[in-house]
Design a binder for these strands. Structure first.
Lengths: 335, 335
DNA sequence: ATGAAAGCGCTAACAA
DNA sequence: TTGTTAGCGCTTTCAT
C-alpha cells in the first residue's frame, strides 16, 4: 500500500485548507458550490477514500460489531452469520467474524482482539471448552454491548438469544413416541452447557408425559460425528438396543445412522433417528433425516437486533432480555 | 463502551508524562525499573488495553488481512478460512472475513470496505456474478498486496492459488472410464470462470485420450443442488442417458444422485457419479460419493503465505506467482 | 531517566 | 465562505 490519497493531498493541489476540503466532501452548507465541485471532482479523480482508521479514532466508534462463533464450518452457524450480516449491513455496520474453533484459548484471544479493535458491540456463542468466563465478564465491565446466542451461560446476566431448545427436544421426542418408539436414547451435548441441559429436560419431560420411564443407560454424552458412530456401533449391537434416538445435532445423527446401517439395522423400521439443526445434509442421506429446524438465520437476526438496541440505548435502564426462537419439526424418512 | 483506559489516565494518576508511560509499557531501556514496575502494575490494575485504532493510524498498518469469499456456508470455503487463519495468526495478523454471497454488488462493497479499513493485504475468490473487475483493479492500483484463490481471473496479473482443476477433472473422468463408463456427462460451472474452463478441459482430454468422442449433448452448465436435481431428473429419463457423471462440486453431485434414485436408477450399477470437493456429506450419503479432494485448507495456507511474501517484500521485483494445489481422488461407493 | 512536541488523517469549535 | 487549531491515543525524535 504505497500512499493512500488524503484530504491533505487534495487541499494542497487545490490550494484550499484541509478543513475546507473536509467540509466540501461532506456537503457542508457553508461551502460554495464551485469549491464543492472542484474538491469532489479531484477526489474522484485521485480515487480518494476516507481513512476509516482516522475516522474511528476521532469518532470513538468503529461501526463494527464483533462475532465470536465456535465453528464456521457448521451449517447452523453459517446461517447465523448471514442473519447477523443482514441486520448489521442494514445499519451500516461491518461484522468482524472470528471463530474460536471450540478452543477456550482462542476465544480469549479473539475477545481481546475485538476489545483492542474497539468494536461497538459483540455477539458471542461460547465454545464447548469454555468454563472460565472472565474474558466475557471483562467485556461487560468495559460496558461493551454484548449479546450471547445459542451457547449461552446462566452465569452471565446479559441479553441472550437461543433456540427454544426445550420445546424442540420435546417435540422431537414426542414425535418418536408417536411413531411407536419405546426405548428412546439421547445423544446429548454435555449438560453443563445450557443447550445440553435444556434439550435433556425436553427429552425427559416428553418421556414422562407419555409415562415412559427415564433410563440412565440410554443417555450418551456425545455430540460429534465420529464419536456417535463409534458409540452407536457398540451400543446397537446389544439385544436391548434403543428403538429411537434423539441426537443433539445432525452430525451426531448421521454417525448413528451410519452405525445402524453398518449393523444391518433398517431405518426407520428397526430404529428411528431424529436430529437437531435441519442441515443441508439431512435432505440427501438415505433415508433422509427428520430434524428440528433451529432457524439460525432468525437467531442471527434477532441477536443482532438486540445488540443494536443496546448500542443505541447506551447504558440506560438496562434489563437483560432473553429471546427464544421457535423450532420446527421437519419430518423426513428416518422416523 | 464507557471510557477505555488510556496511557494518559495512567500518566495522570502516576504523575508521569504520557511518553514515559508509553516507554515503560514497551520496556524501553531508558526507563528505570521502579517506574516500569509502577506503570505496569497500574496498567494491569486498571485493565489497560492499547487502543489498536490509534496504533493502526500511527503505524499505517493494521496487521489485518481481508478475505473475500463467495459463501461461508460451503465446506470447501470453510476449510480455506481455517488455512488462512492459521498462517495469519502465526504472523500475528487478524483476518477480516467478508462474504459476497455470490453477489457482484456485495463484492464491490466489501472490497471498498477493506480499502477504507486499510487492511495490509487481501485474499479474494471472485463471485460467480462478477464480470467487471475494476474493483479488484482498484486494489492493485493502490498497491495493496493481493492474492486470488480458487475463483481466479486470467484478466488479472497477480498471485494466484488454485486447485489443479485440470488434473482433478482428468483423474475424475479417467476413473469413470476405468470403471467402464462410455457416455460421461459433465455438470459444469460456467466456462467463463477459469475453474469451469479448466475442469472442462480436463474432462475433454481424459475422454480424447481414451478415444471417446466429445458429445456436446452431455454438457450441462449447472453447479447447484436444486438445478442439478431438476436437470438430471429430465435428462436421465431418456433411453440415451449418461452412464457416468462428473459434477463440478459435491452439491451438484448430490442433486444428480437424488434424481437418479428417484428415477429408480442404481448407483453405481446404472450410473456412476463423481463429485469435486470431498465435503463432509460425501461420506454419509448412500452410496457414499466418490469425489476429488481439493485441500481447501492447503489452498488457504498457500494463498496466505504468498500474501505475506508480498506484504513483506513490498513492491520490489514483482513477478506474479501461480500455485496449483494438487488434488486427490477419493474413491467411495458411487463409482 | 524523563518530558515536550510533532504527527498519523480526520472533524468541528472557534476565528476571521 | 474559508482558515486555524485542538484533539482522538499512541510513538518517537529531540531536548533537558
Amino acid at each position: 500500500m504505497e500512499h493512500q490519497i488524503t484530504i491533505k493531498d487534495i487541499a494542497l493541489k487545490l490550494g484550499y485548507s484541509i478543513s475546507t476540503v473536509s467540509r466540501a466532501l461532506s456537503d457542508h452548507p457553508d461551502i460554495s458550490p464551485k469549491t464543492k465541485k472542484a474538491v469532489k471532482e479531484l477526489a474522484d479523480l485521485l480515487g480518494y477514500k476516507p481513512n476509516q482508521i482516522a475516522l474511528n479514532l476521532r469518532n470513538k466508534s468503529t461501526r463494527t460489531i464483533g462475532l465470536i462463533i465456535p465453528e464456521i464450518m457448521h451449517s447452523y452457524f453459517s446461517t447465523v452469520i448471514s442473519g447477523v450480516e443482514e441486520i448489521a449491513y442494514n445499519n451500516d455496520f461491518n461484522v468482524f467474524i472470528s471463530q474460536s474453533n471450540e478452543s477456550y484459548k482462542r476465544e480469549v484471544i479473539n475477545t481481546q482482539s475485538l476489545l483492542s479493535n474497539r468494536v461497538d458491540g459483540v455477539l458471542v456463542s461460547i465454545s464447548k471448552e469454555t468454563k472460565d468466563l472472565s474474558h466475557i465478564k471483562k467485556l461487560i465491565s468495559c460496558k461493551i454491548p454484548l449479546v450471547l446466542f445459542d451457547r449461552i451461560s446462566d452465569e452471565l446476566n446479559v441479553d441472550k438469544v437461543m433456540s427454544d431448545d426445550y420445546h424442540g427436544a420435546y417435540i422431537a421426542v414426542t414425535h418418536l413416541i408417536e411413531r411407536g418408539c419405546k426405548r428412546i436414547a439421547i445423544f446429548s451435548a454435555p449438560t453443563n452447557l445450557s443447550i445440553g441441559k435444556n434439550r435433556y429436560e425436553g427429552y425427559k419431560n416428553a418421556l414422562t408425559d407419555n409415562s415412559i420411564p427415564i433410563d440412565q443407560n440410554l443417555f450418551f454424552p456425545c455430540d460429534t460425528f465420529s464419536d456417535s458412530r463409534r458409540i452407536a456401533l457398540s451400543v446397537f449391537k446389544k439385544a436391548e438396543r434403543p428403538d429411537g434416538v434423539f441426537a443433539v445435532n445432525d452430525k451426531t445423527a448421521f454417525g448413528i445412522m451410519l452405525a445402524s446401517k453398518a449393523l444391518g439395522l433398517q431405518i426407520p423400521e428397526d430404529v428411528k433417528i431424529i436430529g437437531f439443526e435441519n442441515s443441508f445434509s439431512a435432505e440427501i442421506t438415505t433415508p433422509s433425516l427428520t430434524s428440528i429446524d433451529q432457524f439460525g438465520y432468525e437467531i442471527g437476526r434477532e441477536a443482532t437486533k438486540l445488540l443494536f438496541k443496546r448500542i443505541k440505548n447506551g447504558d440506560e435502564d438496562f434489563l437483560p432480555e432473553e429471546k427464544q426462537i421457535k423450532t420446527k419439526l421437519i419430518i423426513r424418512n428416518s422416523t
